[in-house]
Write a protein that binds this DNA or RNA. Structure first.
Lengths: 234, 234
DNA sequence: GCGTTATGTTACAAACTGTTACGAAGCTTC
DNA sequence: GAAGCTTCGTAACAGTTTGTAACATAACGC
């Protein structure tokens, strides 16, 4: 586990010492600050993975510090406070706190919540899912996920219905592997299709629009995407 | 106009109905499930931004569901439970919950914590990029909230009715995500629209005034804002 | 061969979507 | 207020997609 750095903002020296000791034993690297200026200075000076911010400096003050920090950085913040009324908690969330813990608290629970927030914050902050430019190919056939287009070996674009496209996608993603109807239905995310003959008819339509030899039948099993080849032996 | 999708897993129908109503009013799109299987099915559809998971199904059960979900997906989870003992809370965190709320809870506080978790998870598809509603862009299309203006890829200003503009805004705020008619209606804050064909006609009009290819149809699902070529972006 | 089973194929119906026409409601202008 | 315009939802019709059912054909076991 990597070493996480916590910034502990707490004006009660005893409390700070105790917490710091406990968290250090838990494997965190602790920086301490006892005031707004100290906290901001610590933030500027180095990397901080999470801030434990005590609000007992006075409600306004703590909340305000949180807001200031939020404005400058996206560091996760857990507010710790003796003020547990709902509106006070909400004020904390309002200014961007990730969690709000009322004193007195169970140290182990604090630890669990620190980890939850760290884990969530650790996920890359959402570079919005750029489409995976996956292109599936087989024997000259091609499915471009980006454009949702199917092209035949000659480069010709083939017009398929959405269902047919989905089926072809399943085959292209599992070339040369015999797929049962159940597996195909599952891949299509359509459990109902497993029951009737829908898959068969669908395969028929796809064959008609592409190449009758592209999808081979495995009697008693299902269908396989196979190379056009003449090998029909073993 | 946030269009976050919450999955509400709750076996108490009354509680579920109340919560759903409240959260819907707050602008969330709610999917409900009352069992493990229902929850997993809803998840497979892949359209959930956050899960509210009631643990009253029995502690083991709820915690176990959480673990299962965690194993498959990284969707943020807030556990809701009548069990507020520390060790029970910790069990929740242990299996990957992002927050743990004891019943009874203040709805507004729940809301604040939902927002905090969503923000941290970076799942802000609706407010897509942190820029608050100032300017939405996609594939050269642009909506300026300040002036309430829509401009086309060439920089040409397009004249849309208020309803059409609202619809485009919904799409721009949720690019590349297939939206159901229900979700669109919810985002337009018009539940009635979900019933008839109003959305379809509206989409048709918007296509006509913008670009027929801008909004793609997902048969059986709804519509997606997409781009043949995601070229321009500035 | 023959019966049985699995698969191919066609026809049909149901569901879904695009499009147009029409009318109600709201707004502007006189 | 009335005429004219715009907006927008409903209704209706057409075209497409897709599953079911039915029948035809092929493969397999004996």
């Amino acid at each position: 586990m990597s070493l996480h750095r916590l910034l502990l903002v707490e004006d009660d020296a005893d409390m700070a010492a105790m917490l710091a000791a406990y968290l250090q034993r838990q494997g965190f690297y602790i920086t301490r600050a006892d005031s707004r200026d100290g906290a901001l200075a610590a933030l500027r000076s180095g990397r901080v993975d999470l801030i434990l911010l005590d609000v007992s400096l006075g409600p306004d003050n703590g909340v305000q510090i949180c807001a200031e920090i939020r404005q400058a950085q996206d560091v996760p913040i857990i507010m710790v406070s003796a003020l547990s009324a709902d509106h006070q908690r909400m004020a904390g969330y309002e200014v961007g706190a990730d969690d709000y813990i009322a004193k007195p608290f169970n140290p182990d629970l604090l630890l669990a919540r620190i980890r939850a927030v760290l884990r969530r914050a650790g996920r890359a902050p959402s570079l919005s899912h750029r489409r995976r430019d996956s292109v599936l190919r087989f024997a000259g056939w091609r499915y471009d996920a980006g454009r949702d287009e199917v092209t035949a070996p000659g480069g010709w674009q083939v017009s398929l219905s959405s269902r047919e496209t989905a089926l072809l996608r399943v085959f292209l993603a599992n070339p040369l592997i015999p797929l049962t109807r159940e597996e195909i239905a599952a891949a299509l995310d359509d459990d109902e299709a497993a029951g009737g003959r829908a898959i068969d008819v669908l395969v028929g339509r796809l064959r008609q629009k592409t190449d009758p030899a592209l999808i081979r039948t495995e009697r008693g099993i299902g269908y396989v995407l196979s190379a056009d080849v003449a090998s029909e032996d073993a």
